[in-house]
Design a protein around this nucleic acid. Structure first.
Length: 196
DNA sequence: AGGAAGATCTACT
DNA sequence: GTAGATCTTCCTA
């Protein structure tokens, strides 16, 4: 093993918990996207938890459909859908026989920033990945990733263990028309890459 | 086949 | 702070 850098990838078990637990636990972790021979990497700094039939803001609220079926499926796979011409990156996350997912809302770029800027066609680093629609453009993630597992480093996309920096705070969710009473948005306080 | 909604973003005042 | 862009997906007929 000499000379081999071991990366600890979050496995399926990590995602088999309550969505709000996982939304918090993902903060500070590193999202890795293989891109040709190099890697696009960003620290997760903002997330939201979504539940099933009892969550009016959730894609699963109206029941099992073709497009949302992954929310009922195996934890640790991607659930991707479109809003206003932007792709939303979710990770299926729930306890056994439950329903749920976590939305990745913002990243702090750490590797491949020039590629991200080019993908977004912006110069300002703070505009590359600070929002759910922005980060999927920067990382070139679209519907073709819907349903793929991210639980090993064989995957095109995975999330790696990482030291968290900063304090976790919560708020109500952003952009949803009907929300639950609970605060289900989580972010790192004072991080400049959290969406507006 | 057509309409409407949408977990957004951008540019403007 | 608000309006308009833009397009995918779903729902109904």
């Amino acid at each position: 093993m000499r000379g081999v850098i071991t990366v600890k990838v979050l496995g399926k078990k990590f995602y088999m918990r309550d969505p709000s637990i996982i939304a918090r636990a993902l903060l500070g972790k590193k999202l890795v996207r293989k891109w040709n021979r190099s890697f696009l990497e960003g620290i997760i700094v903002e997330t939201e938890a979504y539940y099933g039939l009892n969550d009016p803001a959730s894609r699963a609220f109206h029941g099992l459909k073709q497009y949302n079926r992954f929310m009922w499926g195996d934890p640790g796979i991607l659930f991707i859908y479109n809003v206003h011409n932007y792709w939303m990156l979710n990770i299926v996350s729930h306890e056994p026989s439950e329903v749920g997912a976590v939305l990745i809302r913002s990243l702090e770029p750490v590797n491949g920033t020039e590629i991200m800027k080019a993908n977004r066609n912006v110069e300002d680093i703070y505009l590359t990945t600070s929002g759910p629609g922005r980060l999927t453009r920067a990382f070139q993630i679209d519907k073709s990733f819907n349903g793929i597992p991210i639980t090993t480093n064989e995957s095109e996309i995975y999330i790696a263990e990482n030291q968290i920096e900063g304090k976790i705070v919560s708020s109500h969710r952003i952009g949803v028309t009907k929300d639950m009473r609970r605060e289900l948005r989580f972010y790192l306080s004072k991080n400049k890459f959290v969406s507006r």
